[in-house]
Amino acid sequence: MKKLILMCAVVLGFAFTASAQTESKAEFKFNEEKHDFGKIPQGIPVTTVFTYTNVGSEPLILTEVKPTCGCTIADYTKTPVKPGESGKITITYNAAVTAPFNKTIIVTSNAKTPQKYLNIVGEVVAKAAPSTR
Rank of each mutant, 00 (worst) to 15 (best):
T92I: 01
G38H: 03
T53Q: 14
K88L: 09
T104H: 07
F30L: 07
S86C: 08
K25S: 14
T77D: 09
T77E: 07
A96R: 11
K39S: 13
V81L: 12
T47L: 05
N94F: 08
K88R: 11
C71S: 14
E27C: 07
E32I: 11
S24I: 13
D75P: 03
N31T: 10
G84V: 05
F28H: 10
P100A: 14
S24R: 08
L62G: 02
K66S: 15
V65E: 01
P83M: 05
T51W: 06
I73Q: 08
K82T: 08
G56V: 02
V65S: 03
E64K: 15
T51E: 06
Y93S: 04
F101W: 10
N94S: 12
K82E: 14
N31P: 03
S57Q: 15
G70K: 10
A96H: 07
E64V: 00
N31G: 13
K34M: 07
P45Q: 00
V46S: 13
Y93G: 05
P67Q: 11
F101M: 12
N94D: 12
K25Y: 12
V49A: 05
T90L: 05
I44T: 14
F101T: 03
T72P: 09
T53R: 13
A74V: 07
K78V: 08
C69V: 13
E58L: 15
T47D: 04
T98Q: 14
K25D: 11
D75Y: 09
E58A: 11
T53G: 01
S86G: 05
Q42P: 02
P45K: 01
F30G: 01
K66T: 12
N102T: 07
Y52A: 01
F30P: 03
G70L: 06
T63E: 07
G84L: 04
F50W: 01
G43N: 01
G56I: 00
K82H: 11
S24G: 09
N94Q: 13
G70S: 09
T77N: 08
D36E: 14
L62N: 01
S24W: 07
T68R: 07
F50H: 00
Y93H: 15
V81T: 13
P59K: 04
P41I: 02
I91Q: 08
Y52I: 00
P45L: 02
V97P: 04
E85N: 14
G56D: 03
V97R: 08
Y76N: 06
E33R: 10
L62T: 02
E58M: 13
K29I: 13
Y52H: 01
P83Q: 04
E33S: 13
I44V: 13
F37W: 05
N54K: 01
G56H: 00
P67T: 02
D75C: 04
T51H: 07
I89G: 04
T79C: 03
S57M: 12
E23S: 11
T63R: 12
